[in-house]
Amino acid sequence: MIELALGMIAQVLRISVPYALAAIGGAFSERGGVINIALEGILLTGAFGAAAVTIATGNPWLGVIGGMLAGALLASIHGLVTIWGRADQILSGLALNLLALGATRGGLKILYDSASNSDRFEGVPALGRPDSALLSLLGQPLFLVAVAVTFGAHALLFRTRFGLALRAAGDGPRALDGTGLSVNLHRFGGVLLSGFFGGLAGTWLVMEQHSFTDGMSNGRGYIALAAMIVGKWRPLGAALACLLFGAAETLQIRVDSDVVPTQLLQALPYIVTLVVLAGWIGRAHPPLHLGEPYEREKGRS
């Protein structure tokens, strides 16, 4: 019985990790003022990058770096286009998601001559071989990295000068500009971080599955955005929301569908998000200048 419970906890954590990483990434982008629905594409690109580098080099740690860089590459396009190009942030995100889907599909064809999946590979080796499901998860270096990233991200956002400036970029860009710091560079920093985190989330997926499959992000980027909102744009809050979503997904896998329709459990993250957005569970305030490019001379007062 205890074994079963521990197994479930392990499964919840395992499912939650990619959501949490991506949601934290989203928080960094949006705290700076840039909407990032490209998270879905970043996840996918990150997964592909991690798979390609791991297969090419045989070194999964290089794969991790490759995944993060791939995510950051896509994010930096989003940043350039929306921050300096002042393009609509939603449209840019949509376009990049479509681009990521097409590009990874093309990559599969070119590199592995397959329409559906890459070659298989070994992920990051675990530390030791315990037999309990929970212990084996705790022995996974990437899991430890994810936990460290979660707490580190929270500290970065709320305990450092960069974090303060980033939040100012989203909540009062003019004030930030007035202090002599660059609004655009800080925003770009936030978007870039969302690329690293989102790429790491994709890396986790692909390392778990030991191969890349077409479209494997499968909406996780959007759920991560929902979790970010439920977590009120705070890394720890977002991670907790992801645990909730992960628990729902675990239930959906484990519970027989006669009792509760699985569709209902699948919809749970979105229902929770709507409830939060509507203000029924404490109000969630998005960053005040979310979605607005910064123009120094706009408004003459």
Partner: peptide
């Protein structure tokens, strides 16, 4: 230094944070 008609402040940050923003605090 300017104290603008519409203050250059980050409404969500505290007074202290607004003041030290961009400086070595």
């Amino acid at each position: 230094g300017i104290c603008a008609q519409h203050f250059h402040q980050v409404p969500t940050l505290t007074g202290y944070e607004n003041i030290v923003l961009g400086t070595m605090a």
